[in-house]
């Protein structure tokens, strides 16, 4: 557990949420205190869970039973295989989505024509939850990997593209002018000013994108898959196998958190030049 909860989609720079201060990097007294409180909260949560299970809430397995099942699933290699299958899908989808979102977002921000042509589609598809595309994707693309990766790509793309676009639009005009008077043409200005200046927005967009890719993945697997964490939970549901469902949930949460943290670290590193108030 880390000491702060990241704020999803917070705009970079001016309104950096307090959680993004240096507390995360250098442990001081406040952050140690926060860490302690976090640990206490987790302990209390586990205790309440154990208490509820013991008090005999219908079918609820205790933490130990879940840990036991977790161990079984690890030993048999099932958990690893499922996780690998899920991560593979999410990475491919996330990479494709982000790789597509960055140029499209740039096009929209840089050329008014492109913006006019693309924006209606982005805005329209943004209002459709990616999950609602799944039935269509399955009908059109079958039940293999393609529809799942397609839906994940779409989810990641839609989250990142708006952010990238906003980043490009909000690049300080005087920076562009400064590059131009130093002799930079359009290409150089774009590569060496617009891209770095909008990188904080792009990275925030990627984090949001990863979040929605992950959320979409699990749902996609619930519907049609032969492997994956979501698929495992779906199977367990058929047999009222609650411990396995819990193991799945915890795996999803922990992996999601780890991925978000990694991107947060990357983001911090790449945007260290930013002035934070």
């Amino acid at each position: 557990m880390t000491s702060t909860i990241p704020v999803r989609g917070a705009p970079p720079g001016a309104t950096a949420p307090p959680g993004r201060s240096r507390a995360g990097r250098r442990p001081n007294r406040t952050s140690l205190r926060m860490l302690g409180l976090n640990a206490v909260a987790v302990a209390i949560g586990l205790a309440v869970w154990a208490g509820l299970a013991r008090a005999g809430v219908e079918g609820l397995p205790g933490p130990l039973a879940v840990a036991d099942r977790g161990w079984d699933l690890i030993e048999s290699g099932t958990l690893l295989e499922d996780t690998a299958a899920s991560l593979r899908r999410v990475f491919i989808g996330f990479l494709l989505g982000s790789l597509l979102a960055v140029p499209v977002g740039f096009l929209m921000g840089w050329y008014v024509t492109a913006r006019g042509l693309i924006e209606p589609y982005v805005q329209f598809f943004r209002t459709i939850p990616p999950l609602a595309i799944i039935p269509l994707a399955i009908v059109l693309l079958g039940i293999g990997e393609t529809p799942k990766i397609f839906v994940i790509t779409l989810a990641a793309f839609l989250s990142s593209v708006i952010s990238t676009f906003q980043g490009v639009v909000s690049v300080d005009k005087t920076l562009i002018n400064a590059a131009r008077v130093l002799g930079a043409g359009d290409g150089v200005t774009f590569r060496r000013v617009v891209v770095p200046a909008s990188s904080p927005f792009i990275l925030v967009g990627m984090r949001i994108g990863l979040g929605s890719a992950w959320a979409t993945l699990v749902a996609a697997e619930l519907i049609a898959a032969q492997q994956g964490v979501g698929y495992r939970m779906q199977q367990a549901q058929l047999y009222y196998d609650l411990p396995t469902i819990f193991v799945g949930l915890i795996t999803i949460g922990v992996l999601g958190l780890i991925m978000d943290r990694i991107l947060l670290l990357v983001e911090r590193r790449l945007t260290r030049w930013q002035e934070r108030r």
């Binding site: 005087t174 920076l175 002018n177 400064a178 131009r180 008077v181 770095p196 990188s199 930013q274």
Partner: peptide, 20 residues
């Protein structure tokens, strides 16, 4: 018609590239 490196400009708002 457009800017050129033979005309250096120093802006009122500095306009430094913050990532450099």
């Amino acid at each position: 018609r457009e800017p050129g490196p033979e005309r250096g400009v120093i802006f009122q708002q500095y306009a430094l590239f913050p990532w450099l």
